[in-house]
Simulated scan of single mutants.
Amino acid sequence: MVPLIDAAALASAESASDPAVVALDAACMESGFFRLSSAAVPCSLVEGALDAACGFFARPLEEKLRHCGSAATGWRGYTPMGGGHNCSPASRQPERKESFYWGEPDTDGDAAAPPAAELAALDAAARVFHASMLEATRAVLRGLSLAMGMAPSALEERVFTAPSAKVLLVAYDPVERSELSCGSHTDCGFLTMLCSRGGRGLQAAP
């Protein structure tokens, strides 16, 4: 069983002996996975982001392809099935998934261009979800800092002053028993926070 950590307790923890910090430390050392209490991010924001993603993925393919990510957009945008984002060489090619990478645009101080009409709902939902997830991440960083014997704000001050944090929305097609929607892999970056609906999600391998 993946342990459940109280996010609110992490956010207010002051020492390595705090029960929430002890639980987080043990989870990271023993399996590398943990769950955060639902108070970390309101369920309404999770549901809003998932509903908006479902709405986008339900659009016709030719419409979705108009919003493909590229080097010019920092790869923000849509990636269709077979779009080169296979997670594992063990997967049957291509993996049966499509995705949309949402991230705050690089504006260099200029106002960001408004999203296309068909992306407006997705952009609005992802924006508030992203902000809430950043707050949840700060609670985890506080717990990790304390667990390593540092000041509560140590990791945030070192790695989170201008975070490169994205929302990756993924839709998986049904697969046969012998197929994989997403092969075994290790994510890039420092910390991955997963949300799913209806008990579905990736399997965790220690």
Results as ranks from 00 to 15, higher is better:
Ser91Leu: 02
Asp18Glu: 13
Ser15Met: 03
His85Lys: 12
Ser12Phe: 06
Ala52His: 06
Leu155Met: 08
Ala136Phe: 00
Phe33Thr: 10
Val21Lys: 00
Gly77Tyr: 00
Ala112Phe: 02
Arg35Thr: 10
Asp110Thr: 15
Gly69Ile: 00
Ala11Glu: 05
Leu180Phe: 10
Ala162Gly: 10
Leu10Tyr: 06
Val167Gly: 13
Leu155Lys: 03
Val21Leu: 02
Ala52Ile: 00
Leu4Met: 15
Tyr172Ala: 04
Asp123Asn: 13
Ala131Ser: 13
Ala26Met: 13
Ala27Asp: 11
Val46Gln: 13
Phe100Trp: 03
Gly82Asp: 05
Leu4Cys: 11
Ser184Val: 14
Ser178Trp: 09
Glu157Asn: 12
Phe33Arg: 06
Met133Gln: 11
Ala116Lys: 04
Val21Thr: 04
Gly199Cys: 11
Ala126Trp: 07
Leu36Gly: 04
Ser184Leu: 14
Ala16Lys: 01
Met81Gly: 05
Glu62Lys: 10
Lys64Ala: 02
His85Leu: 14
Ser88Cys: 03
Ala11Trp: 03
Leu169Met: 08
Pro105Gln: 02
Arg92Pro: 10
Ser178Ala: 15
Ala171Lys: 11
Ala111Cys: 03
Ala126Pro: 07
Leu134Ser: 08
Val46Met: 13
Glu135Asn: 13
Trp75His: 15
Leu168Asp: 03
Thr79Gln: 14
Ser70His: 02
Phe129His: 05
Leu4Gly: 09
Arg200Leu: 15
Arg138Asp: 14
Gly69Val: 05
Leu202His: 11
Ser145Val: 06
Ala126Lys: 07
Leu144Pro: 07
Thr73Met: 00
Ala58Asp: 15
Leu144Cys: 10
Ala154Met: 04
Thr192Pro: 09
His130Trp: 14
Arg142Gln: 06
Pro105Phe: 02
Pro89His: 02
Glu135Pro: 00
Phe33Asp: 01
Leu141Met: 11
Ser196Trp: 04
Ala23Ile: 06
Ser99Gly: 12
Val21Asn: 07
Ala72Arg: 10
Leu155Gly: 03
Ala125Asn: 07
Asp108Ala: 08
Leu122Ser: 06
Met193Arg: 12
Leu10Ser: 03
Ser196Asn: 11
Ala7Gly: 05
Asp108Pro: 09
Lys64Glu: 03
Ala23Cys: 10
Gly77Gln: 01
Ala126Asp: 06
Arg142Leu: 01
Gly201Arg: 05
Gly82Ala: 02
Leu45Tyr: 13
Arg158Ala: 15
Ala113Lys: 13
Ala72Glu: 15
Ala58Tyr: 09
Leu50Asp: 07
His85Gly: 08
Met133His: 05
